[in-house]
Computed example of a mutant assay.
Amino acid sequence: MNKKSLIEKWLSDDLTEEERIAFEALEDTPFHKDIVANASKFKASGFSEMPNFESFKKRIKAPEVPVKKLQWLNPMLKIASVLMLGLGVYYFLFMNVMTEVHTMVAEKTTIELPDSSRVVLNALSEVSYNEKNWEDKREIKLQGEAFFDVAKGAKFDVVTSKGTVTVMGTEFNVKQRGDFFEVACFEGTVRVVTDNKTEILKVGDNLKWYKGVLVTGQHTQKEPQWTKNSSAFQRIPVSEVLAELERQYDIKITLESVDVNQLFTGAFVHDNLENALMAISEPLSLEYEVIKPNTVRLSTSE
């Protein structure tokens, strides 16, 4: 029964026991009882008559007492929302900030990660990692080429567009340039995952992935030669060799009748363009000509 009906029946003394309990539970019941009690102290006028409920309600104009609802949940939800928003903003601004390191043409740089792991970045390469979250997730993204000397600890992931290299603590080199992907292990053991294939490399092992073809092999080096200012290649397509030459010397190479798919084994230095051009052109029976300070033409020998 609604509040209005309860009061009407109370005024007419017609409440059942169940309705009386409901009436007593109303918040403004004491107010109505006080009104009736005070009214009984006055003698009614001979012209007065018992008002009906509507007249009584208009005369006393009882203040409307709002029904108290369980509103405690709303403030708690608001507080929780503010806290969640604050945590989200904090994570985005402070915990999810990526540290990025880039190298320019003919530039190399060495960086130290939060766990003292060392990364040597080759020319025109880029790495990014979350320094704030490093203890929980040792992961670094790579575009280009880098040599890693990883401190022992939790697993360490190098993520590229062609595959992921996972280690615990070791030395290895990763190169990812376009369709070319290469990993060489110099210390410890590394796991390389490309598409649905997984390879385990030990000291002296290397892996090449080029245009969908995966080849594993061996090397005898103790560290990548490019860290000593010399790029070395073992049965690598000429296109990749010349691209590396352009990166190391900031030059543009034009070709005339050169088969860029033939394989090259050899090396070139990073501090003398003439010597580097000779080291590449002679084994391939090519001729070179420096036509501008930053442009070189390579052509097949007649």
Rank of each mutant, 00 (worst) to 15 (best):
E171N: 13
Y210V: 06
G188D: 02
K175H: 09
Q176K: 08
F180G: 01
K211G: 02
N206T: 12
W209G: 07
G212S: 06
G204S: 09
G212Y: 01
F180L: 05
F172R: 01
T198F: 08
R177I: 07
G178H: 12
F181I: 06
G212A: 03
L207K: 03
I200L: 05
I200Y: 09
W209E: 09
V174M: 00
D205I: 01
K175I: 11
T170N: 09
F181R: 01
K211I: 05
Q176C: 06
V203Y: 14
G212N: 05
Q176S: 13
D205A: 01
K197Y: 12
L207C: 01
G178N: 04
R177H: 13
G178E: 03
F186M: 07
K202E: 10
F180T: 04
T189Y: 02
D179N: 15
V203K: 12
L201A: 02
K197F: 11
C185Q: 07
R177T: 11
N206M: 09
F181Q: 07
F172S: 00
T170F: 07
V193N: 13
F186C: 11
K202H: 11
F181Y: 14
F172D: 03
D179A: 14
V174W: 00
T170G: 06
G178Q: 03
G212D: 04
E171M: 13
K202D: 10
T189I: 15
V203I: 14
E187R: 14
F180P: 02
V190S: 06
N173G: 04
R177L: 12
K202T: 12
K202L: 10
F180Q: 03
N206W: 08
L201V: 03
D195L: 09
E199A: 04
K197Q: 11
L207V: 09
V183A: 01
V183D: 01
V193F: 03
V203N: 13
C185I: 03
V192G: 04
D195V: 06
G178F: 09
N206C: 14
G204M: 09
V203F: 01
N196R: 12
T170H: 15
C185V: 08
K175D: 00
V193H: 11
K211M: 09
K202N: 14
D195S: 11
D179G: 09
V193R: 15
Y210K: 10
G188E: 10
K211S: 07
E187F: 06
N196Q: 14
V190P: 00
T189Q: 15
C185K: 01
K197A: 12
N173S: 12
E199K: 15
F180H: 03
N173D: 14
F181V: 04
K211N: 14
G178Y: 02
G204W: 10
T194N: 06
G188C: 03
L207R: 00
N196Y: 08
T198Y: 10
K202G: 11
K208L: 08
F180S: 02
K211R: 11
E182S: 14
V174F: 10
T198Q: 04
T198I: 06
C185D: 02
N196L: 04
N173L: 01
K197M: 13
N196D: 15
F181A: 04
V190E: 01
T189A: 09
A184K: 12
C185P: 10
N196C: 01
W209M: 09
F186Y: 15
K197I: 15
E187L: 13
V190C: 02
E199C: 04
A184P: 11
T198H: 10
R177G: 06
Y210M: 01
D179L: 06
N173C: 09
F181T: 10
R177Y: 13
F181S: 03
I200V: 05
G188T: 07
